[in-house]
């Protein structure tokens, strides 16, 4: 068995040092119920949008180079948009998996809205390093979710309250005046990240700007078919919070295929693709533990049937990253 994985911090819980899994699961469910009552429309999947066949053709072209013969992996929107290169995401340094995975999904969805659906919207920036960053400031959305989840110490968050935070408090562009950090879109200073994660001051200071850019839609997924529809037909990534852990299983072509391990991760990751490779269908799981965390990659494939069990697990919560409010395109220049 190949075992060269690099494990990072988790964060789907109240406090890493004092975790009570059942309490976490109950609290997550309560947050989801609350969200369902407050914003039932947000939790209802919107009808599929028109998609540009030309853009899809371009996406498939990039996927085919890597042997993907069908389906959609939204990660490939990055090389489509950034000169053939995948974005170099920084590793999660504290228990911020809920936000770190959410930010990856938000960038994928941003690119899908612009390139695939042809919406006249803009990005917040052009890279993953500067203040003119395509991703929004992680600790802002992290705190919004934690505040709504009633979390004021330690690390971690809930997916339900994270989505509610994105709905109610929006996303803060990294170039917002007055924002301070040692790195963008997420601090690499653990103390700074945790300070933001435990204080409402960042919300108080920047909510007026950030509320313009909120999450409009996020629906629950309970099966691999649900995800396949969301991903392949609607170009929506998803986030899944669960106790499932994974490990390398076997090789198929250039890929190392993963299976469920006996460990337990109280963790959230991004489901960014549903693809056919070497005549089999896989879900592409993107993690936030660094570019080389999983057999030299920041992602790993799992058989689609395994996702069926994972998403249906009573302790898993899986939600799409649907429509985002993004900056409108100004007048077309002529």
């Amino acid at each position: 068995m190949i075992n060269n994985d690099i494990k990072g911090p988790e964060g789907w819980w109240l406090d890493e040092k004092n975790v009570d899994v059942q309490k976490t699961i109950k609290a997550e469910q309560a947050k989801l119920d609350e969200l369902g009552q407050d914003a039932p429309l947000m939790l209802t999947a919107r009808p599929p949008k028109a998609a540009s066949e030309t853009a899809i053709k371009g996406l498939r072209l990039l996927q085919e180079v890597d042997g993907i013969t069908d389906g959609v992996d939204l990660r490939y929107l990055e090389p489509m948009a950034f000169g053939g290169k995948f974005l170099n995401w920084k590793a999660q340094i504290v228990g911020s998996c809920v936000e770190s995975s959410s930010n990856r999904a938000r960038v994928s969805r941003t690119l899908a809205e612009i390139l695939i659906h042809g919406q006249l919207e803009g990005t917040f920036g052009d890279d993953l390093t500067s203040r003119k960053n395509i991703a929004t400031f992680g600790p802002y959305s992290y705190r919004a979710g934690r505040m709504l989840g009633g979390l004021n110490s330690g690390d971690g968050s809930f997916l339900g309250s994270q989505q509610d935070g994105l709905r109610r408090f929006g996303c803060c562009p990294c170039d917002t005046e007055g924002l301070r950090s040692d790195a963008w879109p997420e601090p690499q200073d653990m103390v700074l990240y945790r300070r933001y994660g435990n204080s409402n001051s960042i919300l108080d200071q920047f909510a007026d700007v950030a509320r313009q850019w909120n999450l409009l839609e996020s629906s629950a997924l309970k099966s691999a078919d649900d995800f396949k529809r969301a991903s392949v037909d609607q170009f929506k990534p998803a986030n899944i919070a669960s106790l499932w852990a994974f490990e390398p299983s076997h090789k198929s072509g250039e890929w190392t295929i993963y299976r469920r391990s006996r460990q337990q991760w109280a963790h959230q990751v991004t489901l960014c693709g549903c693809v056919e490779y070497e005549s089999k269908w896989y879900a592409i799981v993107r993690n936030s533990w660094g570019q080389n965390a999983h057999s030299g990659r920041d992602w790993f494939p799992i058989p689609l049937e395994l996702l069926d069990d994972w998403a249906a697990d009573r302790n898993s919560v899986c939600m799409t990253m649907g429509e985002l409010e993004l900056p409108d395109t100004p007048t077309i220049v002529t």
Partner: peptide, 19 residues
Amino acid sequence: LEPDSKGQVKYVTIDKSNA
């Protein structure tokens, strides 16, 4: 504004194409 033969898009946003 459309993907080229390599699947890459030169102008990701209309801001870029405007410029």
